[in-house]
């Protein structure tokens, strides 16, 4: 278990993290969401020892994360950084060795990763000669080269084209299947929704929601019932005394119930007014959950 426990951090008078706690289980992909400046990067940098928490700690397997543990963490910082003039394979090998691998293992892992990313031919080129997308791939490879026990990736998907996103997602899934906990931050909530087992939403330095996407949906307060009766207007719904109509367009009505138990009554009323082509509780997207929780 990778545990973030009661992290608190302020820069001057500016409180950045206010009692941030959450847990990433082995083999779990944890999506870390939040607006710009919500404190995601600070949280991750504290885990890597690059910033100091005023209070709280980060633990891995019940032990506070120290340098020894950090060597087993693969890290991709938000501001990408590698040696611009150093040949790609040499840098990966170097990072592998700095994380405790022997020369042969680091060399092998570096070439395997580069080949897997389609960069085998470019492995002797200096990093700066590569396209930005390929540099991003190498950056990920630098985080993965030591086969880390934990992955902490800050905005790993930003700047990737759809192919790159799929390749990275597949790579992370492979690591997850080996029992590696993966924590990554992202603005792309659709991606988080698609990839993650669990999600944490950070707002104003606090975790405002945390859990699986399903759990977050259930917790969602304003659940909507979606009823489609092609060709009809929404008058049938507005005439019901126990619902509130959120929207009514082209026969599609979104409504909320004062008492969710009366959904079957709504169905009967709908069928009475015309042929119902769709009836069901609407699944809020993570974007909507995010808006909801952050606004709350």
């Amino acid at each position: 278990m990778l545990e973030f426990d009661g992290l608190r951090k302020s820069y001057g008078t500016n409180l950045v993290l206010d009692d941030v706690s959450f847990t990433v289980a082995p083999g779990q992909m944890y999506g870390f969401c939040g607006a710009n400046g919500a404190g995601k990067t600070t949280t991750m940098r504290i885990a890597l020892g690059l910033a100091r928490a005023d209070a709280g700690e980060v633990r891995w397997k019940q032990q506070p994360v120290d340098l020894e543990v950090r060597r087993r963490i693969g890290y991709m910082p938000e501001e990408r950084g590698l040696y611009p003039k150093m040949p790609v394979v040499e840098q990966l090998e170097y990072f592998g060795r700095l994380h405790g691998m022997n020369t042969a293992a680091a060399r092998k892992s570096a070439s395997l990763l580069l080949e897997g990313m389609g960069l085998g031919e470019r492995s002797k080129d200096a990093l700066e000669k590569l396209s930005l997308g390929n540099q991003q791939r190498v950056q990920l490879a630098a985080a993965l080269v030591s086969n880390p026990d934990v992955l902490i990736l800050d905005e790993p998907f930003s700047g990737l084209d759809p192919t790159g996103v799929d390749a990275l997602a597949a790579n992370l899934a492979e690591r997850r299947s080996r029992g590696v906990p993966v924590l990554f931050s992202s603005h792309q909530l659709d991606l988080v929704e698609r990839l993650c087992d669990a999600v944490g939403i950070l707002a104003g330095g606090k975790i405002v929601a945390s859990g699986t996407v399903g759990q977050l949906r259930e917790r969602e307060a304003n659940r909507q019932l979606r009823v489609v009766i092609p060709g009809s207007d929404g008058r049938w719904a507005r005439e019901l005394g126990y619902v509130r109509v959120d929207s009514d367009r082209d026969g599609e009505v979104l409504l909320q119930l004062d008492d969710p138990g009366r959904d079957q009554d709504v169905l009967s009323a709908a069928m009475a007014s015309g042929p119902v082509s769709h009836f069901g509780w609407r699944q809020p997207t993570l974007v909507e959950i995010f808006r909801e929780t952050v606004a709350a």
């Binding site: 278990m1 706690s21 959450f22 847990t23 289980a25 082995p26 083999g27 779990q28 397997k61 086969n147 026990d149 690591r175 080996r178 029992g179 590696v180 087992d197 669990a198 945390s210 859990g211 699986t212 759990q215």
Partner: peptide, 14 residues
């Protein structure tokens, strides 16, 4: 702690 996070038995990677 959020209830019901997906728990995996293995606490070490392979």
């Amino acid at each position: 702690h959020p209830a019901g996070v997906v728990e995996h038995t293995a606490d070490t990677s392979s």
